[in-house]
Amino acid sequence: MRLARTLRFDQSDENVFERAAQPDEWAVSGAFEFSNWSEDDLSGKRRQAFANGWLGLESFGRATFVATAKIEEQEYRALVERLAAHFVEAWGAPDLETARPVAEKELAFMAGLCDEHEPNTLLIVERSLVTSGVSESFRAIAPQEATLDLVAVHVTSDD
């Protein structure tokens, strides 16, 4: 099974999101945060989170990029519990038993998206408001095959 981990190519996420996810957090789309939003909610850093932000499952901050990675079942189950607890604490779900199926559905959706791609595939989300709520589209950028000598400079003491 695969899920997505947040990536940082530079510090821009610190500048564009109210709360930036840390590198290497497991992540989901997190579109549920925007389910009641209207055009009036789309300004500044909130607009950027809505338009292109993945939700990190440790900090509950946002990241622009994620990459697919293998996840073990035990770690996946722990994420279900963490997200269910977040639904109770931050979103007012009545209890863990009620929140757990919703968390499972959110993670299953993300796992399904990631399982379609090879490990280390870069994923990008784009959202828009539509009459029925939030529309999401996803782009995948496959990892480039490169040998170490193409990306590393080898130096000897004679250089």
Rank of each mutant, 00 (worst) to 15 (best):
R2T: 04
L122Y: 01
N15W: 06
T131Q: 09
P101W: 03
I141D: 09
R2M: 13
T64Y: 05
D115I: 02
F60M: 08
D115A: 12
Q22P: 00
D158R: 08
G133S: 11
G112M: 05
A31E: 14
R2L: 09
A99G: 03
A67N: 02
A31F: 08
D158N: 11
W37E: 02
E25Y: 05
Q11S: 12
A152C: 11
D13F: 03
F87A: 04
T68S: 13
F34K: 01
F109Y: 11
Q11W: 00
P143M: 01
A4K: 00
P119F: 00
K45Q: 15
A90V: 02
R77Y: 00
L79T: 06
V16D: 05
A20H: 04
V151Q: 08
D24F: 14
G61M: 01
F32G: 08
N120S: 13
L42I: 07
E72C: 00
A67G: 06
H154I: 09
S12L: 14
G61A: 04
G112N: 12
L148A: 14
H86I: 05
A49R: 06
D115V: 05
R8D: 01
S157Q: 13
V153I: 10
V155N: 11
R100N: 02
F34T: 01
L96C: 06
F87P: 02
N120I: 02
D40H: 08
W26H: 05
E18D: 15
L7Q: 15
V66Y: 02
M1D: 08
M110E: 12
L79M: 12
S35Y: 05
A31Y: 10
R46P: 00
E136K: 03
I71E: 03
W37T: 00
A90H: 04
M110R: 00
F32W: 14
R5Q: 15
F50Q: 07
E18K: 09
P143G: 06
C114F: 10
A108L: 10
